[in-house]
Design a binder for these strands. Structure first.
Ligand SMILES: NC(=O)c1ccc[n+]([C@@H]2O[C@H](COP(=O)([O-])OP(=O)(O)OC[C@H]3O[C@@H](n4cnc5c(N)ncnc54)[C@H](O)[C@@H]3O)[C@@H](O)[C@H]2O)c1
Ligand SMILES: NC(=O)c1ccc[n+]([C@@H]2O[C@H](COP(=O)([O-])OP(=O)(O)OC[C@H]3O[C@@H](n4cnc5c(N)ncnc54)[C@H](O)[C@@H]3O)[C@@H](O)[C@H]2O)c1
Lengths: 209, 209
DNA sequence: GCGGTTTTGTTAATAATTTCACATTTTCTG
DNA sequence: CAGAAAATGTGAAATTATTAACAAAACCGC
């Protein structure tokens, strides 16, 4: 069910929820498609189309119920039992991520970090225990970790991905600038900040007439 | 010229270059479309189509010349005089970014950081001087900074974006989870790691049959 | 209660992106 | 040198994503 939602829609649903959570905190009970659209820099039609795809129906002239919509998006994109996540490489970026995620989403819990630096192993950072990379296989299985976020140095990207796959991981988010290869059964997402920055720089350049 | 390249192509060109630079370092002189494709997890046709769009012609049976292609991609996406970049918010993520970018791309130079924490102002981090946010307007104009990377706490996202726009910035890369609004003349790119993680988690969930 | 306005939901149209299919060229092999 | 194999380049088709257009319903002001 809901397996064939467009990839772009999945991303937007996550973003809608983020915006809706802010509205909920502010005590807002309803929201119009064009309000969501404004926040996300897209069109109101697109918002309505996405909500149509997940079968949510708003109220005419009142818009969408913020709380209900948050819940429905949760039903669609979250998994019921939650998903345990590991950080590979507790360096600058790894720590920044742990800090950022701490308590943000109850369905996604960072339950372990891994490193090879003996000074870090055994410590806890923002509530996340750091283990030795050597124990990756065991810990990932013990803690039922499904997703790994790779923040190791680029030269260790390939070997770390291999270890993760061997340990039975189901999804990898790779922040390393080194693309990795995984079997089809593992979902892979790669992101490089330089690509984003170069894209911004490109459009700045061509806007300069 | 080259103004109407598809957005997706721009992103991929940046990624091709990243891969090609690694090949160049290894001493590889030529590369086939299917080799590039494998690295980027896309199809060879897509690579050829992108290169067709930028007017690059490879050699039949030899593939593409690594060095030439790197140079051509540079001609397309880099601006000739280089672009100066500022980091807004020298916290965990800001410092991680400075560290990461240091010396990676000569065309994109992080020339200033801004913060409001007096302990940070006046210091230098990985060669990047940290200024007070109050001086943003002056410094951005003095140093001819065109692009800003926002890594301030979410509650300061809106005001920081406003300051940047007032200072005449041309592009913003927003890593804050708070979407911001800017005039059409400013190119805006937003990225939230939670969206990426939720996307990975979603596909892990639906792959579990 | 009526006419005007606003908003949703959805079909149809359009636009963007990717893939297919294949002609062409080069290289290799015997 | 002929035929097979491997690669590029590209028009056309297919797919995916976005936008336009509009009917229908709800509310507002009078
Ligand atoms: N810093 C950024 O903003 C940024 C942005 C994009 C990508 N990246 C990439 O993310 C990665 C990490 O960046 P960083 O700034 O955190 O670097 P860092 O050097 O601060 O952290 C790397 C950490 O990984 C650990 N490590 C090394 N080998 C390991 C292994 N085999 N298994 C587990 N842990 C291991 C190190 O001990 C260190 O703690 C790099 O590949 C970098 O290119 C960084
Ligand atoms: N840490 C992550 O991995 C991560 C990931 C995605 C997004 N983010 C977002 O990036 C932002 C920064 O994250 P962080 O972990 O670096 O936080 P942080 O608290 O470590 O850093 C924020 C820095 O911004 C400075 N600051 C505060 N107000 C400012 C202002 N008005 N002008 C300039 N500087 C100001 C603070 O002094 C601090 O140095 C947050 O919005 C966070 O949600 C972080």
């Amino acid at each position: 069910m809901m397996k064939n939602l467009p990839h772009k829609t999945i991303e937007r649903l996550s973003q809608y929820r983020r915006a809706l959570l802010i509205c909920l905190e502010k005590g807002q009970t309803h929201i119009y498609s064009h309000e969501i659209a404004k926040i996300q820099h897209i069109t109101a039609v697109q918002v309505r189309r996405d909500l149509m795809l997940i079968g949510y129906t708003g109220t005419l002239r009142k818009g969408y119920n913020v709380k209900d919509l948050i819940d429905l998006i949760g039903n669609i994109i979250d998994s019921t039992e939650g998903i345990n996540v590991a950080i590979l490489g507790m360096g600058n970026l790894g720590r920044a991520l742990i800090n950022y995620f701490a308590g943000k989403r109850s369905q996604l819990k960072i339950v372990a970090g891994f490193d090879i630096n003996p000074d870090k192993i055994g410590n806890t950072m923002s509530g996340v225990p750091c283990f030795s990379s050597e124990d990756m296989n065991r810990i990932i299985r013990e803690k039922n970790i499904k997703v790994g976020i790779m923040t190791v140095p680029a030269e260790f990207a390939t070997s770390t991905a291999e270890q993760l796959v061997k340990a039975g991981i189901r999804g990898i988010l790779n922040y390393t600038p080194k693309p990795v290869t995984v079997p089809d059964s593992v979902y892979l997402e790669e992101y490089d900040m330089i690509t984003s920055l170069e894209k911004v720089a490109f459009f700045v350049k061509i806007n300069e007439d």
